[in-house]
Amino acid sequence: MFHLSLFRPFFRLSKYLRASPAIGLALGAIALLICTIYSLTLGNTNISLETIFRSFTAFTSFADNDRFEPLIIQTVRLPRSLMAIAIGAALSVSGALMQGLTRNPLAETGILGIGAGGALAVVGTLFVFGNSSSVVYAGAALLGASIAAVAVYGLASCGAGGATPLNLTIAGAALTAFISSITTAILVLSQQTLEEIRFWLAGSLAGRDFDLFLQVLPLTILGLIMALLLGKQITTMSLGEEIATSLGQQTLGVKLLTVISVVLLTGSSVAIAGPIGFVGLVVPHGVRFFIKTDYRWILPYSAIFGALLLLTADIAARLLLKPQELPVGVMTAIIGAPMFVYLAKSKVRK
């Protein structure tokens, strides 16, 4: 009885949001705005809310010797928050797309090796060519993510029954281990490469290149737009490819567009902050507690709450060992690993 009474409000909220899903999006957007404002206050320098608001509304009113704090807000803290929002939305939407397309509850860019493929491409580029431009690293991440996605699907298709959820999970785990071993070997051989990229490999938002973020942001936006436009088709594909074909859907075209969207979202995220895992696993499953199967709502919900999750994880990473900070990828792993174990024991077995 205690257990049922504890969770009854969540069931009521779930029924209410299914009837009026736009309300949940609005509440998520409000929570995201509040967390963004709070994120702007965090740092070695304590900055008041009044200064934060004035730095955007009346920057010229500050005297020259008083513009240090507004500049911190505009050049350091706001860019970091914006990157967390964009990357969180991209990773969670890409995870939702993959889960809907493959009907695999464990489908996620980190688990299926797509993020690891992008990371290996960046590490390999740095090892072979040395320091290159940010655009080169972004292109390498996109190429590596694309190759990893094709490789995982090809390996899974070779198994008994084709690319089943279990085969995809096993193929992704095997490919991730293989790619990670190559990445580790490169870092062992080149101490210079390790020194330059080790914090990035853990998945971090600290000191990220905001110019690179602005350069790859169009790719992220394009990937998100493609994903949102595919909501109806992914809902049909989640019922099974045979059913989708019988309903007249061009499944090959939907698969191709979905893979392009996933690669754009994952590659741009890896290029900015490195491989950050489990966001695309945790958020879509949390969203489905309220929005069951309609990807026209699951995808925008995943974008909002994925951004909220990664921004919250970044805040926790800065607060937990203050004044030191953990990479945000460590925080998402702490959250996502138990979810992965639960799903592996329950849904994949079914």
Rank of each mutant, 00 (worst) to 15 (best):
V328C: 02
F340Q: 08
T266Q: 07
A138N: 08
S5N: 11
M331K: 00
T176H: 10
I87M: 01
G286C: 11
L40T: 03
Y301S: 07
F305H: 11
V150T: 10
L239P: 07
V150A: 14
D64M: 09
L214E: 11
F213W: 10
T258L: 14
P105Y: 12
A96G: 06
A303K: 01
I225Y: 09
C158I: 06
T236E: 06
S190D: 15
D209Y: 12
G172D: 02
T251S: 02
A174R: 00
A58H: 13
V93E: 02
P9D: 08
S92P: 04
I170W: 06
R12K: 11
A177E: 01
E50K: 09
I334F: 13
S132G: 12
S14F: 10
E50L: 10
G286W: 03
A303G: 04
Q99R: 05
L343F: 13
F213A: 06
D314C: 05
N104K: 05
I304D: 02
F199H: 13
L32S: 07
P338M: 10
L247V: 12
A174N: 02
F11E: 14
E195R: 11
L308M: 09
G118Q: 01
L222T: 15
L320E: 07
A119Y: 03
I291C: 06
V279C: 05
R349W: 09
T193Y: 05
L40I: 08
T75R: 11
L265V: 10
I243W: 00
F11A: 15
L222D: 07
L265T: 04
A90V: 01
E196G: 13
F127H: 10
Q99M: 10
L319M: 15
H3Y: 14
L311I: 01
V122A: 12
K347F: 07
K345C: 12
T169P: 01
S14D: 09
T164I: 03
G172F: 01
R80N: 12
K345L: 15
P79N: 13
G110I: 05
V93C: 04
S157P: 00
L219W: 14
G43I: 09
S157V: 02
A344M: 15
V263P: 09
L309H: 03
V123P: 02
G100F: 05
F62H: 03
A140N: 08
D66K: 13
L91P: 02
K347W: 11
T109W: 03
S39C: 03
I111C: 07
A173F: 04
R54K: 14
A344D: 06
D294M: 05
T169Y: 04
S261L: 11
